[in-house]
Nucleic acid binder design. Structure first.
Length: 409
RNA sequence: GGACAGGUGGCCGAGUGGUUAAAGGCAGCAGACUGUAAAUCUGCCCGCGCAAGCGUACGCUAGUUCGAAUCUAGCCCUGUCCA
């Protein structure tokens, strides 16, 4: 369908839209007034990762088209301990830890959104503000009548668990009620009219809309993004090496840049539309590049995303490091470094020390396989003693992609 | 509270007394081929040690045994059904 509001048009042409509760309704609303819209985020870690970036970018799009982004931090829900994952997510965080996480996460939002008091300035709120005030009996009486178990059982989040015969705790079952309540509360406090989220949030969003309609008679809207996976089917933002964190102190800019630089050919166009502000014509040109030429598009992608999330400076340094390291065979300043003591260090120990390998045993195996090079010369003796002359630097590499700088210590 | 089933390496999943650091698959890492991509083929894939070797590991604890992931007891956890 064609949209009249710039918001919906932008979201549509850039590939953010999976489902909308009432496409015409929200389009009409966005065409005539400032729409405050929110997305909820978890506060279980000191940083969000790339998996949340689509949502953050949607808030950015909201603001770009003249609307008001509301960032909702799940401080209240985090207090309970999000039960959706398996064992690790069972941990319950202290209020102090949650507060620290929220402060840390906020730094990324500040790069991508403009905060303030103006009508289209972004605001950040913590759902703990209202959730922790709730009394159980009160909640049951006011909200309880609007939910039927029959209906709740039909939601995918619940249904899938039951079908797979996986446990679903009462706590988790209640999660959707709290999330629904969030939407209603935001509608009352901030005049929020739109909730966005990943496609897995559809049920929660719809519940919030229904609850608010029944309790207050207010009409709200919901919009979800497609579930983002990489071309080979993996969830975005998680690699075997760990999550791709948005915060600098969780993941160095160089590694962040490399994540995008190494993306699958098939993902380039999609990612450029979702995660950069580049004009669509420019993206069309980039994704049309063929063969090795697509690498140029990947560099642009890495530059742009790193610029947005980490700043110009970080993006430039990471790009320069990549250029000199890969193309020039030299050394970039952004690479991990290791100070080598005067008496030298064994090759295997050096590999582990710079983080190439998890253990000396693994390092030895890799060395034996001929994967490790010093100054681009393969070395196959794990006991080889590396020394660095005073003031000089040497290059340590494992495979094509892992490089580090050795300094004299 | 009761009956039954089950808990194995990042995940899935074989294994019912020694030859099992534990088949196979997935994921991952490296090599070859390339384009810092994908696909494919090959190798690797608990830790320490230069090495010989040692230490840990099959939910937890205690036991049987020359020897246990495998047998016994108790406990914990999960699922299904019953109350």
């Amino acid at each position: 369908m064609t949209y009249t509001s710039s918001l919906l048009r932008l979201l549509d042409e850039r590939g953010y839209i999976h489902q909308i509760t009432d496409a015409q309704g929200i389009d009409a609303l966005a065409a005539k007034q400032v729409v405050p819209g929110y997305i909820g985020f978890d506060a279980t870690a000191p940083s969000l990762h790339v998996g949340s970036l689509v949502q953050i970018m949607m808030l950015r799009r909201l603001q770009q088209t003249g609307h008001k982004p509301i960032v909702v931090m799940g401080g209240g829900t985090t207090k309970i301990g999000d039960p959706s994952g398996k064992d690790e997510s069972r941990k319950m965080l202290t209020p102090e830890a949650i507060g620290a996480n929220i402060a840390s996460i906020r730094t990324v939002f500040e790069r991508l959104l403009t905060f303030g008091d103006g009508p289209t300035d972004a605001v950040m709120v913590d759902n703990d503000e209202w959730l922790s005030q709730l009394g159980y009996i009160e909640l049951l009486r006011t909200v309880g009548p609007h939910f039927t178990i029959n209906r709740m059982l039909t939601f995918d989040s619940v249904k899938l668990r039951l079908e797979r015969e996986q446990p679903l705790t009462f706590l988790e079952f209640n999660y959707m009620i709290l999330q629904a309540y969030d939407f209603r509360e935001l509608s009352r406090r901030q005049g929020c009219r739109l909730q966005m989220g990943g496609s897995d949030q559809w049920g929660n969003i719809v519940n919030g809309i229904e609850l608010t309609r029944r309790m207050d008679g207010t009409e709200l809207f919901g919009l979800t993004t497609p579930l983002l996976t990489t071309a080979d089917g993996a969830k975005m933002g998680k690699t075997a090496a760990g999550a791709v964190w948005l915060n600098e102190d969780q993941l160095p800019a160089y590694d962040f840049w490399q994540y995008w630089r190494n993306c699958d050919d098939r993902d380039v166009g999609r990612f450029l539309r979702l995660f950069t502000d580049l004009p669509l014509e420019e993206i069309a040109r980039l994704e049309a590049l063929e063969g090795a030429g697509i690498n140029d598009a990947k560099v642009v992608l890495a530059n742009e995303v790193t610029k947005l999330c980490r700043g110009e400076e970080a993006a430039r340094t990471a790009a320069e490091t990549a250029l000199t390291t890969f193309a020039g065979g030299g050394l970039g300043q952004d690479l991990p470094t290791l100070e080598v003591p005067a008496e030298g260090i064994r090759l295997a120990a050096a590999c582990t020390a710079v983080g190439f390998t998890a253990s000396n045993g693994e390092a030895k195996r890799k060395i034996g396989e001929g994967a490790v090079r010093i100054d681009d010369e393969p070395v196959t003796d794990p006991a080889f003693l590396i020394t660095v002359d005073g003031g000089a630097t040497r290059k340590l590499s494992l495979g094509r992609k892992k490089h580090a700088v050795l300094l004299s210590g």
